[in-house]
Design a protein around this nucleic acid. Sequence first.
DNA 1: CAATCTCATGTAATCGATTCCACAAGGAGG
DNA 2: CCTCCTTGTGGAATCGATTACATGAGATTG
Lengths: 338, 338
Amino acid sequence: MPAIKDVARCAGVSVATVSRVLNDHPSVRADTRERVLAAVADLGYRPNAVARSLRTDQTRTLGLVISDVLNPFFTELARSVEDAARELDYSVVIGNADERPDLQDHHVRTLMDRRIDGLLVSPTDGGSPMMLAAARAGTPMVFVDRWIEAEGLDRVPVIRTDGRGAIRALVAHLCALGHRRVAIIAGPAATTTGRERVDAFRSALREFGLELHEDHIGQGDFQADSGRRVTARFLDLPHPPDAIFAADNLMALGAMDEIRARGLRVPDDVALAAFDDIPWFVHTDPPITAIAQPTGALGRAAVTALIDLVEGRPAESVTLSARLVTRRSCGEPEGSKP
Amino acid sequence: MPAIKDVARCAGVSVATVSRVLNDHPSVRADTRERVLAAVADLGYRPNAVARSLRTDQTRTLGLVISDVLNPFFTELARSVEDAARELDYSVVIGNADERPDLQDHHVRTLMDRRIDGLLVSPTDGGSPMMLAAARAGTPMVFVDRWIEAEGLDRVPVIRTDGRGAIRALVAHLCALGHRRVAIIAGPAATTTGRERVDAFRSALREFGLELHEDHIGQGDFQADSGRRVTARFLDLPHPPDAIFAADNLMALGAMDEIRARGLRVPDDVALAAFDDIPWFVHTDPPITAIAQPTGALGRAAVTALIDLVEGRPAESVTLSARLVTRRSCGEPEGSKP
DNA sequence: CAATCTCATGTAATCGATTCCACAAGGAGG
DNA sequence: CCTCCTTGTGGAATCGATTACATGAGATTG
């Protein structure tokens, strides 16, 4: 693999001149430029990004640490982040934390070692030491979807979706269809989205004169299995709920599994709704009513904010809003009842 | 961010000694080692991977270029690759080609510029110039799932799944359920998996005395939309097929959409099966019969082969076999008919 | 016409690590 | 006691780029 000095020798100039041509510095004579470019093409030369990064102290790479790649929401987020970054000539390196704090730390550390220019995180747990270290080291950082409330991290912009409005709409929908005993499969209390969705759900219910009973709140971990477990507990209750709201799509899937395994039917025996809409929800039996986040916009906003930070401009938090997508898993749509 | 010289100064030794401690070179006195380690902890020093890579000419990073992150098969593959690599202390950088040759080239180029140690590719199209350049530049390379047949690329190991057996089983299943007019939504002819699955399907049909008519072969591009389009064409035929086999999961989804949009039912009006099994197929209406690849094993084998190459050992191609997972989308299972 | 300025290019320092070689101190052996 | 070897450490070259500064040629100007 040829280096810059090979190009220099081949074109009969110094490495400085080659470098200037490559970074199109104005003061290079046209014919010299031609010669250098010819040599570059001839040798198939490509600048070594490692060496360049060492010298310039920038990698034009962003790190993205997400909690679970297998969750379609995060896959879609990752994709939109990569698209947005590429448009601005940045690369993205993805780290999958698999909802495990230790893996999350591993990836943050690795990315920092690689001297990425900025870090995009959707944190798994509460206070992570590596994250604090990163912030303290001055690495530009932005939270997406979830965030951490900790000393030293309060200046980190948060790009997120506010689900309150959509959750209120969901509760209204549930009420209109006659559901009264509603339950929620919550996410881990350590995550902001976990707590927030429960709170929003509870206050929306209260608005409609309903109460969220303590034993109608199940602790999940955003994985399908936990949805199954929590649903089993719900259905074993003396007075099982007639509607279940899962705080993410994987737990909704687990819930559906459990409901079906017991020979019960959605929505006749128990209604089901989920936070995060995904392409597959259209094709389940029945199609699942869900709250959709504007994933593309979320990713773009996150990249914009992070690159602002990287390039020394100020960046602000952004809150987008989610919307309810009504399907059939909570009962037939209003107009179409027999 | 402290550098090695800061540690050296703080510990009162030279940078050479610090480096020796960090790479646990034997000839360092115990108490010197202690002092250095203390300084490292004190300053929160982490070696700069960029500088290290420049000097040692290795990044301990693998590139993975896949054709579509949104396809659950590839997401799962990416995840298993990352897991396997991490176990061996390598990182993985993912590039999503989105089934676009230009994007694929973009990622290969970027990864090569970053001087990754090896490249794992599931190629989108036929002969890619960048891929040839990479191979010629001596970058260790391994193909997963799909591969390219081209001069200069014939030494690249291929880690793949052989679907012939499972496809034969599927055809048997289809026949047993009385389907005779079967059709296939093929992948792009430029991909090996695209061609192979059609061939295997055709010869399996022949074994069972059935013919695959020319107008029962639809050209898709592994995306949901193409599945919809091809299915529409099938259903508009004077003698539409009574069973459709989609060569990947996204096209199966599109097919299901189109079938349902016409008020037809699966499997009563037309049977449906897919290559690649994914968690969601259990939850569709009806659950979809699919051919499952051993994704985890595929990813692990690919990483093993690539790292063998990277570390100078020889590597060989691996072929694993797929299996049929029978559900209800082709008709009721044999034993349970009314 | 001399002084000055501009332009194109080269020389060399630099980024942060690794590693070869030199060297000093101390121990072993004759 | 002198030589030789071992052990621990430091100095300096190196990887491949970027860039501040120096330099020389030619153009401009008073």
